[in-house]
Computed example of a mutant assay.
Amino acid sequence: MNNITNKKIAIIGGGPGGLTLTRLLQQKGANVNVYERDTNEHVRVQGATLDLHHDSGLLALQEAGLMNAFKAAYRPGADRIRILDKAGTILFDDGFTASDDLFRPEIDRGPLRKLLLDSLQPNTVVWDSHLIGLTPSGNGWQLDFKNDTTAFADLVIGADGANSKIRPLITSIKPLYSGVTIVEGNVYDSETTVPAIHTLLNGGKIFALGDEKTLIVSSKGDGSLVFYTGSKTDEFWIHDHENAFSNREQALTWFQETFIGWDAAWLELIEKASFPLTIRPQYCMPLDQTWDTLPNLTMLGDAAHLMPPYAGEGVNMAMLDALELSNCLTNETFTDTQSAITTYENQMRLRASEIARITLEQTNSLHSSEAISNLLELFS
């Protein structure tokens, strides 16, 4: 008997972390449902491609028995990286191969979600389930959703991201602003819409750096690209600029003023993007965060340890959380759920704290006056 026998488990959020955990728990015979606010599985999945690391994301997929599905779905060549200056001069150009230490096989979020969903038992995911509240009920929880449905679970796991509804029930610790705000946009059918940048991308990623700013462009398997501008702003800059990014003319003016002196070719991204653009102030949980473990509630991924994306660790940490949590919950040496969760949370916080420290260093490095030499050194 392990700690999940005869327990009803609810996972809030159907991102890579939540779905990986669900697959791993179902392999061990758990009774588990995922509650996801998307209306169905065909909702377009936004965001750049994900590079999965051997000791975290790929390790979790291996344990989940999904490496063959991954090999069929990943995008060879998507890990190609070009580093450019603001004038568009290529300073570094490389494509990694499987034998290189830096090789990070990349997969789009949509195909990763699909292979995880396809691995689950039928009706595991309850779609259109936007959690609005969690109320103690006996030794478990009542879950209340926006569509007026309810559910019960003995154990609830928050995999519901940066604005987690679960986290405040576990700890009052808030994330800290990193000093950088991202503006994100998508350009569909990049080959015909932005041919010059499409050719430059070559199916991979571009890092353009200068003036303590970043412009990262990533190709996607559906023929679109996604771009992220990163610049130093105050924390509440978003409140004065929200409307600017639903209006193309205003967004173009903002880009020309903020990225003054950058080659005019970059403007094409804003000219051809679909609107509105998305503003993302970047936050990071404190490196020393701690809390008292609860017997029937825990969290993983961004809900537990939000961090900026500049080290490519977010999805990898979430999937490794899923692996470690599933191992703890199904380990028969733990006498109760609380001790299993305590062990998981202690090792998760320690690991995430170190990765967050590295991520903040990288965030600062990429938005410094030495950004180009720092990044070239990293790849040399």
Rank of each mutant, 00 (worst) to 15 (best):
A371E: 11
G14I: 09
S224V: 02
N247A: 08
F96L: 11
D336L: 03
G18A: 08
D85F: 04
K86P: 09
D101M: 10
K28W: 01
E191T: 08
G110M: 14
A304E: 05
W237I: 04
A208W: 10
L84V: 06
V183F: 11
D144N: 09
I90Q: 04
E324A: 06
R75P: 09
N202L: 11
V126K: 15
G261E: 06
D118W: 01
R82A: 13
G140T: 07
R23Y: 02
N331T: 03
L91W: 01
Y177C: 06
L155P: 00
Q250P: 00
I279S: 02
A162E: 10
R82G: 14
L169S: 11
D38M: 00
D101N: 07
R248Q: 10
Q121D: 10
T335P: 04
A196P: 06
T89C: 04
D38Q: 06
T89Y: 05
T290E: 10
L131G: 10
G29M: 03
F207H: 15
Q26P: 15
E242L: 14
T181A: 04
Y344Q: 02
E345P: 03
K205W: 13
W291A: 10
A78M: 07
D144S: 15
P286V: 07
Q347W: 04
D336M: 01
I157G: 01
N316R: 04
D336K: 00
H130E: 13
T193L: 04
L267D: 11
S380I: 12
I170V: 09
D101V: 07
L52G: 01
H198A: 13
N247K: 12
D263W: 07
H367I: 07
T233Q: 09
N6M: 10
F379R: 03
G158W: 03
K220L: 12
R37G: 06
K146R: 11
A153V: 04
S137I: 11
T181Y: 07
G312I: 00
M317L: 15
R113H: 14
F275C: 00
T39M: 14
Q62F: 08
G88A: 11
L297K: 07
S274A: 14
E370W: 04
N346W: 14
G230L: 12
V34P: 04
P286I: 03
H198W: 13
G77E: 08
I4V: 12
G204Y: 04
D85Y: 11
V156W: 04
K146W: 11
L306N: 03
L350H: 10
S231H: 11
I83G: 02
N247C: 02
C328H: 12
D160R: 05
S246I: 14
F236C: 08
G77R: 14
S380V: 12
E257C: 07
E345N: 07
P111E: 09
F334K: 01
G230E: 07
G158N: 03
K213M: 13
E354L: 08
F145Q: 09
S56M: 09
L300I: 12
R23C: 10
D211T: 07
